[in-house]
Amino acid sequence: MYEQTFSRANPGCIVFLLDRSDSMKQPWQSSGGTLAEGAARAVNKILLDLCVKSAKEVGGRARHYFDVGVFGYGACPVAGGEGVEPALGGQPIVPIPQVFDSPLRVEAPRGGPDDETVDAVAGSRLPVWIEPVFGYRTPMCQAIAAAGEHVYGWAANHPDSFPPIVINITDGMVTDSPYDGADLTEWAARLTSIETRDGRALLFNIFLSPRLAPEVLFPTTAAGLPEPGPDLFGISSVLPSSMVANARGARVEIADGARGFVFNAGLATLVWFLEIGTRVADVRDR
């Protein structure tokens, strides 16, 4: 299980659930800017990485190695009001060649040429797909439900692929549990019961905090986490052995049984977490 590589015959599916609630306007002490800005930068960085992984030939388009989705929850900048809204051109699941071809804009790295979190190169301009947005409450259950519908359809159409990877980025308390008769834990269980022949869908959680506190990365226990950390830890999938092996191959220390969860990550750690959580094969230290 969890051994399939990403290929055009068996592409991967990576879905982000992006908290766009009002509290995401709080400052990100460890990395500057707001939590919403940091989360958007991290998602843009991983979308860029997926595009870069899929760019193979000189002058060519990206190869269809991935399908990706970004679901914002909280403020809905297009429809207005509170809810859940696909944030990649209004489409729920998008082939990576389409992402490759349609950034919102291209801009200079915000941190300048010394910003290690964006692999900045002098003179390099980088694409942006996701904007920081915040407002309203935190309908996380509805986000899992909405994304789950599309993830279910994707898995049914890709039975031999690596199972879908869903990454939830949030700063706090879910405000819609129970939703439609099920609480957050039940919605998470429904999501992770979706499967391909290579395993069940994975749900990873990134718990951002405006407070200065030590980072907790890939823990094996919820001990010491502030609320709602234990709940988010509880719904986070155990990292499959293939991801653990890849991480260890890249010289990251991860214990057996570690969960796909991170608390209070700075931007560099957040990007690192996302790289580990979206990498399933072919680690190369370039």
Binding site: L48, A55, G59, A62, V121, S124, R125, L126, R286
Partner: peptide
């Protein structure tokens, strides 16, 4: 190296990863 890159992503890949 190509004299021109088709996209900023291609250029980024050439420069940062190769």
């Amino acid at each position: 190296a190509p004299a021109r890159f088709a996209t900023v992503i291609e250029r980024h890949k050439f420069l940062t990863e190769g």
